[in-house]
Nucleic acid binder design. Structure first.
Length: 577
RNA sequence: GCCCCCGUAGCUCAGUGGAUAGAGCGGCUGCCUUCUAAGCAGAUGGUCGCAGGUUCGAGUCCUGCCGGGGGCGCCA
């Protein structure tokens, strides 16, 4: 484990409070919350008083008398009907800041380090990545970075759609237009027209349809020539995905690709295992498992179809094989599926069947990290099929173009190359933050101006705060932060200190709720508190050398927390903008 | 028909059962000879979809409605 980690203010106070509450009731919850009257408030005395049949203020007072917060809080008082208000001691805050400044921003892990498999992004071969892929890719990537930061071992899995019946038609289309032409089309990312043309031929041409069906059979039977053509489709598409990932600044690489086809060889054995465990039921010619609690429209049991009546395997089979593989081979403790909310029932069924088969359980947990849909102006889901989807790359390119425009307006002294790099950081940062900062499970209506806003609660606002701090240090070569605990006399300094020490809690709750928007909110509030400080507390022109050094320490830490936090979200923190 | 998610300011959204529900955007008032105005300060803006219930206390938990989205056997 790490030698030194930042203090988690919330957990420290909670543990001290629990000790004091325990004198009256060992199981009492202090109900610690942030407060606008103090730094924190404990509300637990009210519920406890009710349970004990006593006066709440009296109970609160009694708890207060048992509280040991020497050196942590400078003021603890009972207020209102029985709230316990806690104000942190400035010298305690200062000491923790100084420690963070010398020892770094490592955060304490909650519980033992785990091996976590994160399944995200999963685009489909020969299909365009559209704005709908943004959510899984960005949220999944941020969660991976955050988990790793907390000391967990992260295994990224990009479960790409590289198998199934559509490949018959895609391969036939590839043959029709010629291999080199197809490779060209796919590599430049013109996947939409490729897929649509294949689809159009399939729908319009009986002969093509028949060839496609035969091609699927050849593919599944392992025909070498067919596999070779299939590999062209996969390789060109993956090359294109990597291009998008590079633009997006996502940590996925070829090593993380574990497509559906990866499990092909496992599927017969998987079916056999289910059969031996007595879970398999034949229904209308298909091999199914009926997990309890799932019903159809007609209230009849709903099957998870493992093997179709034609002998083929569907996605349920590969999803089950993936669970089995992740637990068996990868030894995962935890599996996160960053998958859209509409697939909730399907995943719940897979998890249920995996539990029935004994693949899940024994401390292995699979969780659906669901996210809401991206909707069009008509409030319906944006879908590739409907032809109204927006290409992910178009969004990214537009974002960078708008950021470049904004930068050019500011007559910056940056060279062309750095200007372009900053434009990328700002544009992509805006898009990522716009997505990450909305509550995960909520649907949102796609809006260019919202995704590409650079003002207010946006990625660029956070980057701007960071860049302003860098500018202070750039301006003065002699700018040295204090090596000692800073005085925190001004309220803006004190507010900033409390905000800076909120990082561990922000990271912890982000992981607990698998909610990057919590980290976004924290960073936005930190940046806002900093900006107030920046407006009202001169740094380089502070009245004394000591004050200047103290404020430089606050600046330096703020820049570090912002850069770290943005990094955890997968957003760059340029030094100028 | 059944199940899941969502409903908070004009718009987009935060809000772990606690005190007076918060931001941003748009609109209104101010602020760049002073460390980056992608900023700051201020004012305005709310029957938290509706109705019951649980609770000392409900935007938050429960039930029922209304509205929106999604899912419900061989597509992924």
């Amino acid at each position: 484990m790490r030698e030194w980690v930042m203090i988690d203010l919330r957990r420290l106070l909670e543990s001290r409070l629990s000790t004091a509450f325990a004198v009256l009731d060992p199981d009492a919850d202090p109900v610690l919350r942030p407060s606008d009257r103090a730094d924190f408030q404990a509300n637990g005395a009210l519920a406890l008083a009710k349970r004990l049949g006593r006066n709440p203020r009296e109970v609160a007072e009694e708890i207060r008398s048992h509280l040991d917060l020497d050196g942590v809080c400078s003021l603890v008082e009972v207020s209102g009907p029985g709230f316990i208000n806690l104000s942190l001691d400035p010298s305690f805050l200062a000491a923790e800041l100084a420690a963070a400044a010398t020892d770094g921003l490592a955060v304490p892990a909650e519980g033992p380090p785990l091996r976590v498999v994160v399944d995200y992004s999963h685009p489909n071969v020969a299909k365009e990545m559209h704005v709908g892929h943004l959510r899984t890719t960005i949220i999944g990537d941020a969660l991976c970075r955050i988990l790793a930061y907390c000391g967990h071992e992260v295994i990224r899995e990009n479960h790409i759609g590289d198998w199934g019946t559509p490949f018959g038609m895609l391969i036939e289309h590839l043959l029709d237009i010629g291999e080199s032409e197809a490779a060209q089309e796919l590599s430049v990312g013109d996947l939409t027209s490729f897929y649509r043309q294949a689809r159009a031929s399939f729908d319009a041409d009986e002969d093509f349809k028949e060839r496609s069906r035969r091609r699927v059979v050849l593919l599944q039977s392992g025909d070498e020539e067919t596999l070779r053509l299939w590999r062209i489709l996969v390789a060109e598409s993956v090359g294109y995905f990597n291009e998008v990932y590079r633009k997006l600044g996502v940590t996925l690489s070829d090593d993380d690709i574990v497509g559906e086809s990866f499990y092909n060889a496992d599927l017969p054995a998987l079916v056999e295992e289910l059969r031996q465990k007595g879970l398999l039921v034949e229904s209308d010619g298909a091999l199914c498992v009926f997990p309890p609690g799932f019903v159809t429209r007609e209230e009849t049991p709903l099957p998870l179809i493992v093997q179709k009546s034609d002998g083929g395997f569907g996605y349920a089979a590969t999803d089950l094989a993936a669970i089995r593989d992740r637990v068996g081979r990868l030894k995962a403790d935890l599996i996160w599926y960053v998958v859209g909310a509409p697939q909730e029932q399907h995943l719940a069924m897979c998890f249920a069947v995996a539990k029935m088969a004994g693949w899940l359980g024994d401390g292995v947990i699979a969780d659906h990290v669901a996210f809401g849909s991206v909707l069009g102006a008509d409030h319906k889901m944006l879908k590739t099929r409907a032809g109204e989807s927006i290409k992910l790359v178009s969004l990214l390119d537009e974002a960078v173009a708008r950021a470049r425009e904004a930068l050019d307006e500011r007559s910056s002294e940056l060279g062309d190359e750095e200007q372009a790099a900053v434009a990328r950081a700002v544009g992509i940062g805006a898009v990522k933050y716009a997505d990450l900062s909305t509550e995960r499970t909520r649907d949102y209506v796609f809006d260019w101006d919202r995704m590409l806003a650079f003002e207010g609660n946006t990625g660029p606002y956070l980057q701007y705060a960071h860049a302003r701090i860098c500018s202070i240090f750039r301006r003065s070569a002699s700018a040295r932060p204090a090596a000692r605990p800073p005085r925190l006399d001004a309220p803006q300094e004190r507010d900033l200190a409390v905000a800076l020490l909120g990082l561990p809690e922000a990271v912890r709750t982000t992981v607990r709720d698998r909610a990057p928007n919590r980290l976004c909110t924290y960073l936005y509030e930190l940046a806002a508190v900093f900006t107030t400080f920046y407006e009202q507390c001169p740094v380089l022109r502070a009245e004394s050398a000591e004050l200047r050094e103290d404020r430089l320490l606050l600046c330096s830490l703020t820049a570090a927390v912002l850069a770290t936090g943005l990094g955890l979200l997968g957003i760059e923190a340029p030094e100028r903008m």
